[in-house]
Design a protein around this nucleic acid. Sequence first.
DNA 1: GTGAAAGCGCTAACAG
DNA 2: CTGTTAGCGCTTTCAC
Lengths: 346, 346
Amino acid sequence: MNNLTLEDIARNCGVSRSTVSRVINNHPNVSEKVRKRVEKEIKNTGFRPHAAARALVSQRSWTIGLVLPRSVQSFFTDPYYPRLIQGIAQGCNQKKYTLGLYLLTDAEDEEEIFPRISRSGSLDGVLFQSDQMGDQLIGKLAQSGIPMVIIGRPFQNEKLSYIDIDNVSAAKSAVDYLVDLGYKRIGTITGPLNTSVGVDRKIGYIQGLEGRGIRIEEKLIVEGDFTEEKGYEGMIKLLPAKPDAVFSASDRMAFGAIRALHDKGLRVPEDVALVGFDDLPVTNPVNPPLTTVRQPVYEFGIKAVEFLDDLITTGTTPPRRIIMGTEIVTRESCGARLKKIETQAK
Amino acid sequence: MNNLTLEDIARNCGVSRSTVSRVINNHPNVSEKVRKRVEKEIKNTGFRPHAAARALVSQRSWTIGLVLPRSVQSFFTDPYYPRLIQGIAQGCNQKKYTLGLYLLTDAEDEEEIFPRISRSGSLDGVLFQSDQMGDQLIGKLAQSGIPMVIIGRPFQNEKLSYIDIDNVSAAKSAVDYLVDLGYKRIGTITGPLNTSVGVDRKIGYIQGLEGRGIRIEEKLIVEGDFTEEKGYEGMIKLLPAKPDAVFSASDRMAFGAIRALHDKGLRVPEDVALVGFDDLPVTNPVNPPLTTVRQPVYEFGIKAVEFLDDLITTGTTPPRRIIMGTEIVTRESCGARLKKIETQAK
DNA sequence: GTGAAAGCGCTAACAG
DNA sequence: CTGTTAGCGCTTTCAC
């Protein structure tokens, strides 16, 4: 039980409350002797300053919120979010923040959660997962003046601070890569087109082809939703268009696509090459190993916290953005190694 | 910006601070007229009471912590935890708690997180994922006197309150079910045997067989770790022992097992029947659909919060436990439907 | 039904 | 270097 107060251990040490407060907060003006004595007493008693009292007077709760809107239903099915949360948690540990998690489950929550997260002394700042539906809440929160960074480019509120990867150019680089490898009929399974991520990666795909003077064929584009199942279906739909390579907007869709190809008796990458997106850690081995666009989700989480901390510390104006880099990780599914061998053979 | 205080809106309404406080807290002794006026002012100004000030005087932070020890590395790879967190988040929303997430990433964290979670005004209570490594921290926390419920049976500290399912009898029921279906050589792929969950389900398997007078064969038992990959490997290892049915301690291992059987040209359930454990929502369809022991993870999370809330409200003595029920969900992989048809044919 | 006043546990001037 | 003092914004007796 910790119902000790500063006063208690001050008394025990024969000093004043302020002195104890100073040693706790590492203020310089304390004699070494007193500091030692107080520190010892604190350790012995297991005293810990009362968080709320501290927060009240210092106007800092040392807690940041992470808000995941309800439309992030894939929360428990897509490894992306757990990984992101891990990164954020790590960032919080580093910066000594506590992480408050706000999972919005239904519309009612979304209404009544607002007072709990907007500036009211409980949160120093908030991380908000960008999302079409949630944009309204984001707007309200922004008005409350609480420091906030949006995870992913916001849909409408462009004047907010956010952190993201450049989905367009990342997707473009994947397509470029496939073109360089000599593929002629490159298809894509997109993400959900009601998300900025889904749209941007599709745009990147298109820019990649157009940049190389390749005509866009609607038949070579199917919409997915990032799930393995849709990847499977998408691949099946793509087959009549005879793609020789496919850019999948997520690894999990690519896994589904590989299954579809297997089921149809087609080989990867010999018959259809594949490039995915994400490169999250997985436990089930894929055959062949997937070439993919790696996005640094974990580091992204850490960076998001650092960014928010910066906003909290230095003030929020003007809106800033951080764009993190991606890279292509070459494995087997794109056929690069195969091509190399062929080339050498010539 | 919300830097209004009670005093401000009291002044605006021509009443005292106390009155405003009363309407906010729904105290009875306020005239209807005044209440209306104050409520309107609150709404207009968007005033929200300062959380820290409130917590300080009332000694209630309305925040509970969820601690996931570092050894829960599978956090971002096993759908169990995200689902659990969803349930907990839902429970928190219902009970008006904020959820503080403490993901311990390394040993250092584990040390220094203690002061942040033990009673110090920041948390009203904590939910702690049971875990062999974390048990020490659990003990320390328990001593701090903070209300706590352990998620899953704790390893050593048996005198703590916890919530769990009955893994032994759940596993036993699965095996019973397979015996009833007429299988003779029932194998198992266990969970990691350094976790209580893994051990308990193995015990249940053994009890199930022994209860029916079937001899235990070591060859029919292989240790897994809940991952799909280990399920695959485990099935391969099991094959020489010629099982006609296998109880997998997790669905994901069962998925791996199915893949292994397919790869070996064996049919499910005709050649080897399969029963899994979990029944978490999945996006990738499995063929054949898996018969499994359903554990109510989501409801489990909700219940855990209700339990903790109860402890917070009514006091923590003596330790209590809540055991939630499981049920077998019959699909194709166990061959029940098949057997039924056979039987009818006779 | 309402207001005045005390105080939750802490930090941060300000004196000394 | 150390102590005194004044709050931070709220809830809650206790009078009236």
